[in-house]
């Protein structure tokens, strides 16, 4: 019985200690943004590897998700004779929910895991230690540009996902199932609100960009510097990111609908 309490206590302490380390690292990395002002090239390089390289998977997935929404939405709406509203259904689902969430999940799998593995291997091969001994702060030199690039990329990737998804829905709904093209666009234009829908979606994707990239760089930076340690850290990045994104999504949605 006593052992059980001790175990719960130890886990709780470990959890908060870990959370504290994560927050401290995040703050250090954000402070490090200042060092990037004279060297924007570092961020551009990371924008390419984190953002541009994730575009293909995001665009292809967005297109398919849009097509599925078109099919499913049409089949439900047609029972009520409301298939003209397909554009609204597709656009709202994408902009408010699927765009930010699915993009964040794909981003964590594509870019987050790569970041963790890269930073973890830099640690394992003493490159981070080497930077420190060259009087270069590894947090601001390595983590800050990656974190900033992730925060910038996520909303843009989510926007692409939603935009491509709307066209996917159009392809299925209008071209294949015969919904009126004018109705698809005009209802969408009438019902999608800029502040309530689009801005909220951007806020979500921005928040997801922060947490997924934060998790990825923390896991890489704090991993055990062996091949097993790096592999575990990479797995943790994907699992934690997925859980945090879905949990945070519920929280943000509840706040936004309030």
């Amino acid at each position: 019985m006593f052992d059980w309490f001790a175990k719960v206590g130890k886990n709780a302490i470990d959890f908060f200690a870990r959370f504290g380390r994560e927050v401290l690292l995040f703050i250090q990395a954000v402070i490090g943004f200042a060092t990037l002002i004279p060297r924007p090239g570092l961020v551009v390089q990371q924008l390419f590897s984190v953002g541009v390289r994730s575009m293909l998977i995001i665009i292809v997935s967005g297109f398919f998700v849009g097509m599925v929404l078109g099919l499913q939405g049409y089949n439900t709406l047609v029972d009520f004779g409301a298939e003209e509203s397909l554009g609204v259904v597709v656009a709202l689902s994408l902009v408010r929910e699927l765009g930010p969430v699915v993009t964040a999940l794909l981003y964590a799998g594509r870019a987050g895991s790569a970041l963790t593995a890269e930073i973890g291997l830099m640690k394992a091969t003493e490159q981070l230690s080497g930077l420190e001994m060259m009087a270069v702060n590894p947090v601001s030199r390595i983590l800050s540009p990656r974190l900033l690039a992730g925060i910038i990329s996520m909303p843009l990737l989510a926007a692409m996902f939603s935009a491509v998804g709307v066209f996917g829905g159009y392809l299925v709904g209008v071209d294949m199932l015969g919904v009126d093209s004018g109705a698809y666009w005009s209802q969408m234009q009438a019902k999608v609100d800029f502040n309530d829908d689009i801005v909220n979606g951007v806020i979500k994707s921005f928040a997801f960009g922060i947490v997924t990239t934060w998790i990825a760089v923390y896991e890489g930076y704090s991993c055990i510097p062996t091949s097993e340690g790096v592999s575990r850290a990479t797995t943790r990045t994907v699992v934690y990111s997925a859980l945090v994104v879905l949990g945070l999504d519920f929280l943000l949605t509840a706040l936004m609908l309030d």
């Binding site: 830099m122 091969t125 003493e126 490159q127 230690s129 080497g130």
Partner: peptide, 8 residues
């Protein structure tokens, strides 16, 4: 460093 620790 033993491994050289060159930036790869």
């Amino acid at each position: 460093f033993q491994s050289g620790a060159l930036l790869t």
